[in-house]
Design a protein around this nucleic acid. Structure first.
Length: 487
RNA sequence: GCCCCCAUCGUCUAGUGGCCUAGGACAUCGCCCUUUCAAGGCGACGGCGGGGAUUCGAAUUCCCCUGGGGGCACCA
């Protein structure tokens, strides 16, 4: 095992979003590809918005995707605790260290002053930046105010000079430090700021590579300064592009499903979702499109990750999902699809299930659509004397239906294998041919008689999966209808 | 406003100075298969944002412009 250690650090303020899922995936891929370790860290420094149930749903979604971490609050590890809310003493020690080395100072400025300062600077066309008023306070003054209980924050004293690093995806990036104001390390409420907590955690957890979204790119400068001030070795950074909605803007709810849980509920397969997410701004170097997680791990290389933002393309995800659904065996599909059918009140018999699954397999884009296609096989189906029944008004139809009834009613058993269905259909067609009836007097009328619809599964699936008694009943009903018409 | 990142078909992308008449996939359209719908097969449509510079030669290198995105918090 190499010494590569990466982390996925979601904040539990909501469910797992596709964007975060991709960050998790990239970390997972990087870790596995290099034989390293993936740690899951919960960034719940914002107690007000962080919920334990969100943490649990994130962990569950990660598992569903197959992206298990090697260390984390759910599995433990040597570098815990893995929740920021439980790491307070570590942050406090860090702050004390920075205070002792004069890399940090207390600040007593009120929110009001900070806000007006910011407004002033913005109006003057400058970048908002703290003016270091409190940095110039005499030590006795600071001591006295602290003693008196004046609310204080602790700020980092941003050092002079440019700060640059080589991003794993973007290459060299440089920031001028005078564009960065003295940021807060510890809030008046005693909580620690994200940029600081992250550094203490990444250093403490021996993270070697930080792989995250591009929205963190400017944070990197701050974090690098902190590593230097803390005298800790800095990790390497890789910032992947963000996912946008079809309109080019930030991906949001108005673009449809955006959380992993929603995709799962709609009936996307985890393999398809992972495959799609991997392909979004990454490619294997050849022309493969359908890849297993292991194959992606094998070929994964940060330098092949695209620098530009990718638009979430539901059409392509749908295509991939269909591909994965079609790759399933009928037995597996029939089980996977069961809850979706049951939800719509569709329950199929033992011998029926697999035929039904096989019959609808090619139609499915998403599992949620299963009931719509499977309904013809159930008693839910109501055949009315609609326009479709007009298809029965063809010469020879009566003969065909009678032949079908005759042949099918004496078949052995209730449900049949697909191949038996095929053979049965052939028998019927042959029988019809024997009586001079063929072609359009058979296929469509038979379909309409059996389903009341002019489209649906292949006839042999219908014969195999409908059930002999249902077939006979529906045929009888159609025959009765014909009787009525001719009377 | 300031800082940072990005820029090839509608979308995801290949492309690292001549193999490019810019390749693949999704979507779209057409044909084939199929006595239905799909699936599948074949094909078509469709792109290097603009301007300079370097070079014998630029999608590929450099500069400017434009456009898009991100950041500038006592959020993460």
């Amino acid at each position: 095992m190499s010494d590569v250690r990466v982390r996925f650090a979601p904040s539990p303020t909501g469910t797992l979003h596709v964007g975060s899922a991709r960050t998790a995936l990239y970390n997972y891929l990087f870790a596995r590809h290099h034989g390293g370790v993936l740690v899951l860290r919960i960034e719940d420094t914002d107690l007000k918005r962080s919920l334990r149930e969100h943490e649990q749903s994130i962990v569950r979604d990660l598992h569903w995707l197959g992206l298990q971490a090697d260390e984390g609050p759910d599995v433990g590890g040597r570098y815990g605790p893995y929740r920021q809310s439980e790491r307070g003493p570590l942050y406090e020690a860090g702050v004390q260290q920075l205070l002792a080395t004069h890399s940090a100072y207390h600040c007593f400025c009120t929110q009001e002053r900070l806000e007006s300062l910011k407004a002033e600077q913005l109006a003057a066309g400058r970048m908002p930046k703290y003016d270091r008023l409190c940095h110039h306070l005499a030590p006795e003054v600071v001591e006295a105010r602290l003693e008196a209980g004046v609310p204080a924050t602790i700020r980092f004293l941003v050092p002079e000079g440019d700060i640059s690093f080589v991003d794993l995806i973007h290459g060299p990036i440089t920031f001028s430090s005078d564009v960065i104001g003295d940021f807060i390390l510890k809030r008046t409420d005693g909580g620690f700021a994200y940029n600081f907590a992250v550094v203490v955690d990444d250093a403490g957890m021996k993270i070697t590579h930080v792989i995250r979204g591009e929205d963190h790119i400017t944070n990197t400068a701050r974090q690098l300064m902190l590593y230097a001030a803390l005298d800790e070795p800095a990790p390497r950074y890789g910032h992947h592009s963000l996912i946008h909605g079809p309109d080019g803007g930030k991906l949001s709810k108005r673009h449809g499903a955006t959380s992993i849980g929603e995709f799962r509920d709609l009936g996307y397969l985890s393999d398809a979702v992972v495959n799609y997410l991997a392909l979004l701004s990454w490619h294997p170097g050849d022309e493969r499109e359908k890849l297993t997680l292991d194959e992606v791990v094998e070929g994964f290389d940060m330098s092949r990750a695209s620098k530009s933002a990718a638009i979430f393309d539901l059409d392509k995800l749908n295509w991939l999902n269909g591909l994965y659904i079609r790759a399933l065996t009928a037995a597996d599909l029939s089980e996977i699809v069961r809850p979706y059918l049951r939800e719509q009140g569709l329950e199929f018999a033992e011998g029926q299930r697999q035929v039904v699954a096989a019959a609808i397999q090619a139609n499915l884009v998403v599992l949620e659509e299963a009931p719509r296609y499977a309904r013809v096989f159930s008693d839910d189906l109501v055949i009315t004397a609609s326009t479709h029944l007009a298809a029965l008004d063809e010469p020879g139809v009566r003969t065909a239906l009678e032949a079908a009834r005759e042949r099918l009613s004496r078949a052995e058993g209730e449900y049949f294998e697909v191949d038996e269905g095929r053979a049965l259909l052939k028998d019927v067609v042959d029988a019809c041919a024997g009586q001079g009836v063929k072609g359009k007097a058979i296929y469509k009328p038979l379909r309409v008689a059996l389903t009341g619809l002019d489209q649906g599964p292949e006839l042999f699936y219908l014969i195999a999966g409908l059930g002999r008694s249902r077939i006979v009943a529906r045929l009888d009903a159609a025959l009765a209808y014909l009787e009525e018409r001719s009377a």
